[in-house]
């Protein structure tokens, strides 16, 4: 464990505010899971560390808002990255109510760009987006974090599931604000693809999303094709 202040204990990693070459940095340490036998645990932690670092690098290259990648220590399953300052979006949805539509449209556009690189986040949640701007400011800046389940994929299915999971999180965590969050997100996603002359791709994703929802094991017959 690197020396420093433990900022957060997430599901799979501990975030430590430490020092890297004399500057403040965030150490994401995939700690050992006591519940998993080492044969599974070591493999999963190493695999996810490598994948996450590679994907962060690709996204940074493309200018998608993610933390800067500084260093990787494979042996301790640790990624050193830029310290992003802000609040978990999950915690500021209420005070941001007036501009949620704009924010979620921007998030939608950013996810569309990410998907355009054939990368899916794998766990888009409002806990995994850090809102950086001041709450009362007109600026909108945010960063995606936690690419632990992200991967390269070109499949419409995987991209649609990425969106579907986000929809599920909004439904379960922000049920009362669903209309303010998800439709603008989809509008932003769609607008980005249309601007890049890829509205056909959007239609494919839209269709697949509907399919995924009716595929659920317990969807009422009326909604099933």
């Amino acid at each position: 464990m690197p020396p420093g202040e433990v900022l957060r204990k997430g599901a799979e990693a501990i975030l430590v505010k430490g020092e890297w070459l004399g500057r403040e940095a965030l150490f994401k340490v995939r700690t050992r899971k006591a519940y998993r036998i080492p044969q599974i645990d070591d493999k999963i932690r190493a695999e996810r560390t490598v994948t996450e670092a590679r994907i962060l690098a690709s996204l940074l290259d493309a200018g998608i808002p993610v933390p800067g990648l500084l260093d990787v220590h494979l042996k301790d399953a640790t990624i050193v990255m830029e310290l992003v300052r802000g609040a978990r979006l999950k915690d500021v949805v209420a005070p941001l109510r007036g501009k949620l539509a704009r924010i979620f449209a921007r998030i939608g556009a950013a996810v569309a760009r990410m998907h355009g690189l054939d990368i899916i986040h794998g766990d888009i949640t409002t806990s995994n987006i850090i809102y950086e701007s001041a709450l009362d400011s007109d600026d909108i800046a945010f960063r995606f974090i936690d690419f632990g389940l992200a991967r390269h994929t070109s499949s419409v299915e995987d991209k649609s599931v990425d969106i579907h999971l986000f929809k599920r999180v909004i439904t379960s965590t922000h049920a009362g604000d669903f209309e303010r969050l998800f439709p603008p997100f989809m509008d932003g996603y769609k607008a980005h693809l249309e601007q890049h002359g890829r509205s056909g791709d959007f239609k494919k994703i839209e269709r697949r999303l509907e399919q995924i929802e009716t595929r659920g094991r317990y969807v009422e017959k009326s909604k099933r094709k």
């Binding site: 204990k9 997430g10 599901a11 799979e12 899971k33 519940y35 998993r36 036998i37 599974i40 766990d123 949640t125 806990s127 965590t173």
Partner: peptide, 16 residues
């Protein structure tokens, strides 16, 4: 393998 997966999903929901 199966229980680790189920436990990981439970842990993610618990953290959330």
């Amino acid at each position: 393998t199966a229980f680790s997966m189920v436990t990981e999903v439970t842990e993610r929901a618990l953290a959330h």
